[in-house]
Structures are given as structure tokens and as C-alpha cells.
């Protein structure tokens, strides 16, 4: 990274508050593939002149997988300690590239004392493009076929369907929709803590079913907006030995590349 990503602690030490907190999330902090997305988001924010900060080592799991796996105790322990940190810094606005973190921070912290305005990175990118704070050249993706896989927790979970699509439309690429998209989007198979366990007995893996649908469109790129979808769809593409033809990319990576960041 050719710029320094600042932490909330550093902002606080100067007595300043950033425009927005960039909540990374566990997958995007530790998974090597997802880290690339995290860096792309950071570059976009930086290039657009957004004054953002991260929690760095003060961040901890939102508790989403624990809650969905039925461990409400663990979820609330995580939530309360995160809320203490967030409220301690007076955080009001949070951007994240993880729809699971987005959902939990937005909808499930409220009753425990955490009220934050949440923005998915695709929404923020859309705003930055609309406001002209960020400019992209479409050339990189001219003539490319892209399909967008709706993350459940962004789409059905929080009714965000258009932001990632409108971001993709800024590229000179052709956006193709899968039959199961938007409200009818088909899960990648990771949610509800599934990614942390082997699937139950069945005749197919969920991610394979979904990837098959995406590959049916013969896309160049399967665009995602969630680190878990990224893992599942990448595995799915590999299972069809298509990784040399089809890339799985986050919308932030598309934009970062188009903006030459």
C-alpha cells in the first residue's frame, strides 16, 4: 500500500474524527484472496479523498456466525465489547465490504446499544462515482461479460440490489443476469455459519449449483460483493476447472482496476 491506513486510535489521538469507519471483518482481514478486496476498497477510499479509519487490531468478530449458529451468548458478548469500542470512538458511520458484518452492525447491535449508519462498499463506491469524487475509465473491461451474484445478506437481507449493479454499469462491460437474481438470488452456500462446517449429506454442493448457473452465461467475470461469496464462487469455478477462463472478482476490485488504482 502506498499510503498509510490510519486507525481510529490515531485519529482520536489527534482529537479528530474520520468521515467513516471502514469495518474490515474477519474474512477480509485474514483470507488472502479477500485481503486483496480490502486493499482495493482502501485504495478507492483513499483515491476519492475519503477520510476513513479502521479499528486495526481493536476490531473483533461481529458475532454473526455465532448468532446464526444459535450461540446468542457468544454473539452478545462480541456485540457488547464491539459496541463499547465503537461508541468509545463515537463512531456514527460505518462502511464495510462484508454483507454479514453490514447486517449485524446495522440490524442486530441496535437493541444492545449500538446505533450506526451502515454503508455497503458498493453503495459508497456508487456515491463516490455519482459525486465525481472517483473517476473510472471503462476501457479495461470493454466487451467483457460480467454477471453479478447477489449476496443474500445484502440483497434479500437488506434490500440492496441496485448499488453493485450500478457500479458495474460504470464499466464498459456487459452485465448479464442469472435467472435467479435479485430477490430470487441463489445462495452461495456459505451463510448461516455453513462455511465453518462440512455440508449435510446431499447430492451437490450449494456453491457448485450456483457456479454452474453463473457459468451457464459464459461470463468472463463473476462479480461478487461479499468475502464469503468470493470463497464459495472461486471454489465453484475451480470445481469446473474454469479458473483460467472465468475470474471471480469483487465489485471494488473491478472499480479499482478501472480507475487504475
Amino acid at each position: 500500500m502506498d499510503f498509510k491506513v490510519e486507525t481510529m486510535a490515531e485519529y482520536a489521538a489527534r482529537g479528530e474524527t474520520p468521515e467513516v469507519l471502514f469495518w474490515i471483518g474477519c474474512a477480509a482481514s485474514f483470507d488472502e484472496r479477500a485481503q486483496k478486496v480490502t486493499r482495493a476498497v482502501a485504495k478507492i477510499l483513499h483515491a476519492s479523498g475519503v477520510r476513513f479509519a479502521v479499528l486495526g487490531t481493536e476490531e473483533s468478530c461481529t458475532g454473526d456466525p455465532a448468532k446464526r449458529a444459535g450461540n446468542e451468548f457468544l454473539f452478545q458478548m462480541q456485540a457488547m465489547s464491539n459496541i463499547q469500542v465503537l461508541n468509545g470512538y463515537g463512531v456514527t458511520k460505518v462502511v464495510t465490504a462484508c454483507p454479514h458484518c453490514y447486517n449485524t452492525l446495522k440490524n442486530e447491535y441496535r437493541e444492545l446499544g449500538g446505533n450506526y449508519e451502515l454503508v455497503h462498499h458498493s453503495e459508497l463506491i456508487q456515491q463516490l462515482l455519482d459525486q465525481g469524487r472517483l473517476k473510472v475509465e471503462g476501457g479495461h473491461f470493454a466487451g467483457k461479460k460480467i454477471t453479478f451474484h447477489d449476496p443474500c445478506y445484502l440483497g434479500r437481507g437488506n434490500n440492496i440490489y441496485e448499488a453493485p449493479r450500478s457500479v458495474i454499469h460504470k464499466l464498459d462491460a456487459a452485465l448479464f443476469e442469472m435467472k435467479r437474481s435479485r430477490e430470487k438470488g441463489f445462495c452461495c452456500g456459505a451463510g448461516g455459519a455453513q462455511i465453518f462446517k462440512e455440508p449435510e449429506k446431499g447430492n451437490k454442493d450449494v456453491n457448485v449449483e450456483r457456479t454452474e448457473e453463473a457459468l451457464g452465461l459464459s461470463p468472463d467475470i463473476i462479480a461478487v460483493g461479499c468475502p464469503f461469496c468470493m470463497i464459495m464462487m472461486t471454489d465453484g469455478v475451480k470445481s469446473f476447472n474454469k479458473e483460467s477462463q472465468v475470474q471471480v472478482m469483487d465489485v471494488a476490485e473491478l472499480i479499482a482496476r478501472a480507475a487504475d488504482l
Partner: peptide
């Protein structure tokens, strides 16, 4: 086996 994807509720 549930992925909590909300396809059913939708």
C-alpha cells in the same frame, strides 16, 4: 443444513 439465505421467507 440451513444457510439462513431467506429465499424461503421471500
Amino acid at each position: 443444513a440451513c444457510t439462513s439465505c431467506n429465499a424461503c421467507t421471500e
